[in-house]
Structures are given as structure tokens and as C-alpha cells.
């Protein structure tokens, strides 16, 4: 594929990088990434993947834009309050880069649709805001052998980890079971500082770039914890657990579960 003159200009700062070049930019343009959630994390992840020319973005969310989202969800705006988050984000991303095909899915992700939804994609990014979805996405990615870049934010803290099924740990190697409902507060209950999703989402976007380009080291077998109050990044080793119920040697979870049981989504 030859670049157009517009593409040469748009991606010039990528092309001059030894680790990217024209070859890497073509890989980015051919890549297909699925983003779970068009909220705090999904907005910056989608924004930067779009800017970088990641060719196909699938994005799923079932919510509409609310005024309380705008303190951190940068793909939406005051003008798109009340609009479906998918329509709002799609309009923002398409305005940024017409090279990118944005496929918006206005549904709630579930055990019944996730495997079909992620089937055509190379990489999955989790930007969800609740444990049932986080475990659903992890288990589905392990079963489908899709690399997963997982992010989480709360208050002044952010987590990022990259799960490469068959090679490294999975989310259940780190936290085998979901915490009981009510133990970990949600963003609605505990708050979240405005730019935290920007930090964590940008880290997730970079992880995606490295997976696509095959360059550098991703957060495999590693959990990165950002403490915004102390301004520290800590790397925690997460060995793959041979007894992990989903990615271990003798998995006990062989099909997707009813992750919502016992959880009520705070809306």
C-alpha cells in the first residue's frame, strides 16, 4: 500500500521513528482493535488509536453521555449530552482521522455476545468500570486467545496490565475471583480525579501500539500501578498461575459464566 500525501504528513512523526517506519505504519493501518467502553478509558484509548491511524476500531457501550462524564471522558462534549456515547465518540474519532473505520456497538457486552464481537479483532482493550465486565473480558480473551490490554482507575490510582494468552498471566492469575459486591467502591461512589483516565488510557494505547508493531516490552506478567498523589509508578511481578481457573494447566472455567450474579450495576 502506498501512502497518500496526506498520510505522509499525518503519520510523518511515526514514519521517521526507527521502530515504526512505513512498515509499522502500514501495520497500524491494517490493525483491528476492540475497545470495551466509551467512558473514561475508552475515550483516550480510542482518541490516540484513531490519531495513530489504527485502521479499524470496534467500540461497545450501552450508555448515553451525562454531564457528570465530562470531567474526564474527553471524546464527549457539552453538545453531546444525552446522545448515545457510541455516536458521540464515533463522531469525535471520525472528525480526527478519516482513515479510521469506527464500528460502534450500542449494546451491553455479555457472555452471549462477547466471543462473536471480538472474533474479527486483533487486540482487545478493557476500559470497563465494573468487575463483572472485567472478568468476562478476561475470560473471553483467554478462551479466544486475544491479547488484552486491561486498565482500571479509581480515585487517584490507575492500573494497567497486558494479558497475552498462552504467554503470560491473566487477570485471574492476579485476582482469582471478583471481590464481593460492595467491597470495592465504584467511581460513582468514590470519585476519580480528572486526568487519571488520560494517563492510564494513554499507557493502554501505547501497549496496543507495541503489540501491533511487535516492538518493545509490553506489561506481560506485570501490573503497573500509578499513584497520582505520590506521582509514582510501581511495577508488580505477576507470575502466570499454573492453577489459574481459566488459563492454568487444568482450567475449571471452560465456558463463560453469569458474571453479573450477585452484582447490581450502579447506574
Amino acid at each position: 500500500m502506498d501512502f497518500t500525501e496526506d498520510q505522509l504528513q499525518r503519520y510523518s512523526r511515526h514514519i521517521i521513528l526507527p521502530e515504526v517506519g512505513g512498515k509499522g505504519q502500514r501495520k497500524l493501518l491494517a490493525a483491528k482493535v476492540f475497545i470495551v467502553g466509551a467512558g473514561g478509558l475508552g475515550c483516550p484509548v480510542g482518541y490516540y488509536l484513531t490519531a495513530a491511524g489504527v485502521g479499524t476500531l470496534g467500540i461497545i457501550d450501552n450508555d448515553s453521555v451525562e454531564l457528570s462524564n465530562l470531567q474526564r471522558q474527553i471524546a464527549h462534549s457539552t453538545k453531546t449530552i444525552g446522545m448515545h456515547k457510541i455516536d458521540s465518540a464515533k463522531a469525535t474519532f471520525e472528525a480526527l482521522n478519516p482513515d479510521v473505520s469506527v464500528i460502534g456497538i450500542k449494546e451491553r457486552i455479555s457472555k452471549d455476545n462477547i466471543l462473536d464481537l471480538i472474533k474479527g479483532y486483533d487486540i482487545v482493550v478493557d476500559g470497563s468500570d465494573n468487575f463483572p465486565t472485567r472478568y468476562l473480558v478476561n475470560d473471553a480473551c483467554v478462551m479466544a486467545k486475544k491479547p488484552l490490554v486491561s486498565g482500571a482507575i479509581l480515585k487517584f490510582e490507575g492500573h494497567v496490565t497486558t494479558i497475552v494468552p498462552g504467554e503470560g498471566h491473566c487477570y485471574r492469575c492476579l485476582f482469582e475471583e471478583m471481590p464481593p459486591p460492595g467491597l470495592v467502591p465504584s467511581c460513582q461512589e468514590a470519585g476519580v480525579i480528572g486526568a487519571i483516565p488520560g494517563v492510564v488510557g494513554s499507557l493502554q494505547a501505547i501497549e496496543v501500539f507495541k503489540l501491533i508493531l511487535g516492538k518493545g516490552d509490553v506489561l506481560k506478567n506485570t501490573l503497573l500501578i500509578y499513584d497520582a498523589l505520590k506521582t509514582t509508578f510501581r511495577r508488580i511481578k505477576v507470575p502466570k498461575n499454573p492453577n489459574c481457573p481459566v488459563c492454568g494447566d487444568n482450567p475449571t472455567i471452560r465456558e463463560l459464566l453469569d458474571y453479573d450474579a450477585g452484582y447490581c450495576a450502579v447506574r
Binding site: L8, S12, R13, I15, I16, G21, G22
Partner: peptide
């Protein structure tokens, strides 16, 4: 610059 190098690099690739 940087299109001089962009063109040269793509040709070398």
C-alpha cells in the same frame, strides 16, 4: 523537513 527524511526513509525501506 521532515518530509525529506520521510520520503528518503520510505524509499530505503
Amino acid at each position: 523537513c521532515p518530509y525529506t527524511f520521510v520520503k528518503a526513509k520510505l524509499a530505503v525501506e
